[in-house]
């Protein structure tokens, strides 16, 4: 069984992964399915957080303490590397969220809405309603439609 390659001491059971998976899918689903931009960002944050938890739980060692040097050589530490990585990832996440929120504010200012479908409608109106005749493909489509 190839899965034995995972250090079983690191993973005391798989329940943490199940939680992470549920959280991850919830987040992804919200991001994809919601039309409200803010809700999308909430979903995205949920999604990212689940990954942070995946990493952190991966680095946890049963009975291990925080990885701070002590004088006692028998101390068991949790793996500090995932923490470091996730610290970086959190910073990235914050930056992303801030940027996304800033964009949402701008979108709200220029479109007057933060609902994806309404924005899409406005954008369709910006596009010229009548297709350009210089495009041979459009001319073809027009002819097909006309014949019907």
């Amino acid at each position: 069984m190839p899965d034995t390659m995972i250090n079983m001491d690191l993973v005391t059971g798989h329940y943490n992964y199940w939680l992470v998976v549920v959280l991850m899918m919830t987040g992804l689903f919200i991001t994809v399915s919601r039309g409200n931009l803010i809700k999308k960002i909430v979903g995205l944050n949920l999604f990212q957080t689940s990954v942070f938890m995946l990493y952190i739980s991966m680095g946890k060692i049963k009975g291990g303490t925080a990885p701070i040097l002590t004088d006692d050589p028998a101390t068991v530490y949790s793996n500090p590397l995932p923490h470091v990585l996730i610290l970086t990832a959190i910073v990235v996440g914050i930056a992303t969220t801030a940027l996304a929120l800033a964009l949402i504010i701008r979108i709200r200012e220029s479109y007057g809405t933060i609902e994806a479908d309404e924005i899409l409608e406005i954008e369709h109106q910006i596009d010229d309603p009548d297709p350009s005749p210089t495009n041979p493909a459009n001319a073809l489509m027009a002819r097909i439609r006309g014949n019907r």
Binding site: T31, L37, Q48, A100, L103
Partner: peptide, 17 residues
């Protein structure tokens, strides 16, 4: 063109995923 905002937003969502 104000559509740059939504373009950036969608890019952000996709890129972050």
């Amino acid at each position: 063109d104000k559509r740059a905002l939504t373009a950036a937003f969608n890019y952000l969502i996709m890129g972050t995923i």
